[in-house]
Nucleic acid binder design. Structure first.
Lengths: 333, 333
DNA sequence: TTGAAAGCGCTAACAT
DNA sequence: ATGTTAGCGCTTTCAA
């Protein structure tokens, strides 16, 4: 493993000069810099991250804590984060908690988050008070993406407003019999997201003077399969609603599948709207309220980077914009 | 930031003893160990990974290079890897290349893979000769999961045999008019996977004395949307096949959607089989050849860990098992 | 069983 | 513009 000394010796300068030259610091003559870079290249030298990390106190790595990596929102945010970090030479260290949360203890119990990362981005998780405190006391920048957590900085959409806008789109179309495919609190995941989306639904109905029919609300997790099953239950009711607001696009797609199976024409007999603009939304012609998950990842990474660069922390609750995308699953009743 | 010295001082022993006690090394009296552990816990001490990395030459981190993290196979393998690593205290450092591969240069050009990880797992990527050489010369254990790469160690299914088995399932059911939704070579991704799956299809037909109809083969990427479009094109032909072998479950699901849109009964008028046992396969009642992506991730991680522990490297091509899962999308013509 | 001390490879003052 | 040198926090001989 070639070290900085090898490069210094080979190019006839001191290690300090090599260090300066390679990192693009000032006070190195162009000729020297070029020579050093050439020998470094030739020797295949790369600085040891352990050594420079020890010397500088910086690891050039960001911890990203995710509940899992197979759902659209999480994987997309993760890609946004990684893209941003990669561009500035930062590494992404993944902490995949797993939905069951067996490893949470290991991750949080003052273990790995510490000393290996310069900052931490957490996705849409539910934290115990102890975990929250540990995150806060980490001493380095932290942000949560996707679901507000009291006491921690946060970046995400306005869950309640988005749910309300989706419901109002349906109401605007003339629907008054509206059902809701609600999210269910999942262990380890932020419970506020399903709660607020449901609340937004209820608020929209209330504001329009429409009564909430509890029998037209079904709960499931945010995925296609569960959404389909919930919709199957809901649509079996008589009477059934003329429109459905699903708490996520995946659930909406599940509802679409259920409607097809039951021979219910969409949007003829049933309108469906979701939230996300999932990768499959376009394929299914789904009307939805789009949120930019990739952009949220980038944005969160940028914020952390800026803080690490010495910028003073910005306001603690950042709201990102959403847009209604009308496609083919909503129409007047 | 509490250091080992703080712990040593607080517990009245030397740093060496603290180090030994905390890492579970022998030659520490039970009483001392307990005392050290208690003060460490109380002080919230965690060893700096930079410092121990520098001292030992081990980073306790594994590099995982993925083309992206939003497709089922990749995200699932990644979760398997992370689960295994987490259990032994290793960290996962993610290198998300992005399909467009803009960042490949940065990752590979003797940069970050080096000195930050003890081993590297790469997923199903296509490497340039230069990249391959860099991986091989990294000096630490390396393995590729998901698509064989000449000159690198590999773990995965037997692509050709699996495709053949899927096709033979269709033939066994009595089909002779069989089409294929083939994968397309995607930039940066291993081209052998779509190629071999197509070859397996052709071999199976050949062995059964059935002619290949080129007009019944359509190409697309491995995803649902593209699979649906390819199936739409293919099923528009007259005559059309009575069965379809899709190179992936996502494509098969796309075909299922296409068939529904065209009013073609599955499996009455059209049988469909895929490969993977994707999370959605069950929801769609899809017959498929299952591969255990999570298990492959675990396995790959285990192999790397074993080698790091000094075990001699195992044979270089590891095949993992697959199983046919008959569900509701295949039947006799 | 425990401690002293020499590094691991790099960075950052401080000199020159 | 370049060199010298003292750490960064830990592990690991080697002694005791």
């Amino acid at each position: 493993m070639t070290s900085i000394d090898d490069v210094a010796r080979a190019s006839g300068v001191s290690t300090a000069t090599v260090s300066r030259a390679l990192r693009g610091l000032p006070n190195v003559s162009p000729a020297t810099r070029e020579a050093v870079m050439a020998t470094a290249e030739q020797l295949g030298y790369v600085a040891s991250s352990s050594a420079s990390g020890l010397a500088t106190g910086r690891t050039l790595a960001m911890g990203v804590v995710v509940p899992n990596v197979s759902r659209w929102f999480y994987s997309t945010v993760l890609e946004g984060i990684d893209a941003e970090l990669r561009a500035v030479g930062y590494d992404t260290i993944l902490f995949n908690l797993g939905l069951k949360g067996e490893d949470r203890e290991r991750v949080f119990h003052r273990s790995i988050l510490r000393k290996r990362t310069d900052a931490v981005i957490a996705l849409c998780l539910d934290f115990t008070p102890a975990e929250r405190e540990q995150l806060a006391s980490l001493g380095h920048p932290t942000i949560v993406v996707g679901g507000p957590v009291p006491g921690l900085r946060h970046l995400g959409i306005d869950e309640l407003a988005v749910a309300r806008a989706a419901t109002e789109h349906l109401i605007g179309l003339g629907h008054r019999d509206i059902g809701h495919l609600a999210g269910i609190p999942e262990p380890g995941l932020n419970k506020r997201v399903p709660q607020r989306r449901r609340r937004g639904f209820e608020v929209a109905l209330g504001a329009a003077g429409i009564a909430v029919h509890p029998e037209w609300i079904e709960q499931s997790d945010f995925q296609i399969s569960a959404g389909r099953e919930a919709a199957l239950r809901l649509l079996a009711r008589d009477p059934r609603p003329t429109a459905l607001f699903a708490a996520s696009d995946e659930m909406a797609i599940g509802a679409l599948l259920a409607a097809r199976e039951l021979g219910i024409d969409v949007p003829g007999k049933l309108s469906i709207i979701g939230i996300d603009n999932h990768a499959l939304a376009e394929t299914f012609g789904l009307t939805t309220i789009a949120q930019d998950a990739f952009g949220q990842g980038r944005r969160a990474a940028q914020l952390m980077l800026a803080e690490l660069a010495g910028e003073t922390p910005r306001p603690s609750q950042l709201r990102v914009a959403t847009t209604l995308i009308e496609r083919a699953t909503t129409a007047s009743p």
